[in-house]
Amino acid sequence: MRGYGPVHPTVNEIRLSHADLIVKHPVTGADIHLGPIRMSQGEVVSTFSEKQMANKLNLGFCATFGWNEIKVIAGSMLDMAMDLPEPHASQTEEYVLYHTESVESSGFCIHYKLPHYVTFNSTVDNLRRVAQNPPKQTSTHETT
């Protein structure tokens, strides 16, 4: 198994909770509360290493029925990766098939629950530097 796609996010928050399931009664039209169901929501943040999005944090989101931590992490990463402007190798058939070996990929997604605050710290340091010293606007006609 080889690396990961263009997105290696930091998990911001994973929420496991109950949501009320409400349906409309087919005859009376009244709302009926059928009971709570389990829900998971995941939020991940990442800078992308390519194109113009690298100087800010972007958000990926996913929600599922049931309590699935791994699934919402995977889903929110897909949420970010699918929006990338240019196709990455990880979106090709060969890469996807090779990397959906379930034991390996579940392990890879679980690893996002390990602490990443040092690497995140390093990323934030860059974001601050770019914000403090924005690149000089260079004229498009500059010839030197």
Binding site: T47, N55, S122, D125, N126, V130, K136
Partner: peptide, 29 residues
Amino acid sequence: VRYGSFIQGASYPVMVHKRYVMSPSPIPR
């Protein structure tokens, strides 16, 4: 050009023995 500075966070690539570019693992810079 784009950001005014290098934006690689951790895993900053290194040149080893003036020959091979290597990933030092995701250690901070």
